[in-house]
């Protein structure tokens, strides 16, 4: 469902979209079933002159099964939801595949600064490229990011990646993503960070190998 509203651009975006879709199918089924039952009962047992009510305590076996069977089925559905949710979570947040490159993301009130490895592909060397509010990555590469904050909490959110991670001052948080398609997309700050929170956006430029190399070359010596 999400992919119709916003393009999936990372390797795990599809998994999260599927999980979202799957959960909505399960809960949607129960939701419409129960609402249907609800409105049916409202109609069936509306007030009619001279029709008395049935005295029911809720202990009757033949009625209780209407509660108990759905109850057990819901537990089964929950187990399924938990299984797939934990699996997705594990892939995105707990697992860390080998990186092709590492970038550093530094957030502060109210801007993002990005440190890209230069031509040598290593972070922390002289040819690192620093940019503000503009992140350049190459499609098909696995990136690790090291997320830092200089002042308050921020949150690095790239909706097309379905990725979000809070930045905590005093900590370096590591995560990963692998962009799939070229294009230019939004980065948002997703954690209240003060007056400029609403303008704390950046752009992510996903480029093909040649374009990315050209960009690195254009930055050489700056």
């Amino acid at each position: 469902m999400i992919e119709r509203l916003i393009q999936p651009v990372s390797t795990f975006a599809g998994d999260i979209d599927q999980l979202f879709f799957g959960i909505h199918m399960v809960v949607g089924f129960w939701f419409f079933l129960v609402q249907g039952m609800f409105f049916y009962l409202l109609f069936r047992y509306r007030y009619r002159e001279g029709v008395p009510t049935t005295y029911v305590t809720g202990k009757e076996k033949h009625l209780k099964k209407w509660i108990n069977i759905p109850h057990i089925l819901i537990i089964l559905c929950d187990v399924g939801v938990i299984f797939f949710a934990v699996q997705t979570w594990y892939n995105v947040k707990q697992n860390l595949p080998e990186a092709d490159a590492t970038i550093r993301i530094v957030s502060q009130q109210w801007a993002w600064s990005f440190v890209h490895p230069g031509e040598d592909g290593e972070l922390g060397t002289d040819d690192d490229i620093k940019t503000v509010d503009e992140l350049h990555v190459q499609e098909g590469m696995t990136y690790h990011f090291q997320l830092e904050s200089r002042d308050v909490l921020h949150s690095f959110s790239v909706p097309v990646f379905r990725l979000k991670q809070d930045a905590v001052p005093g900590r370096v948080i590591t995560g990963w993503f692998e962009p799939m398609h070229t294009g230019v997309y939004d980065i948002q700050c997703a954690e209240m960070c003060g007056i400029g929170h609403g303008i704390m956006g950046a752009r992510i430029h996903i480029e093909s190998a040649e374009d990315h190399a050209a960009w690195i070359a254009s930055k050489k010596g700056t």
Partner: peptide, 9 residues
């Protein structure tokens, strides 16, 4: 399992 993504704290 060891925590792969929380290197700092």
């Amino acid at each position: 399992e060891a925590c792969a993504v929380c290197f700092s704290a």
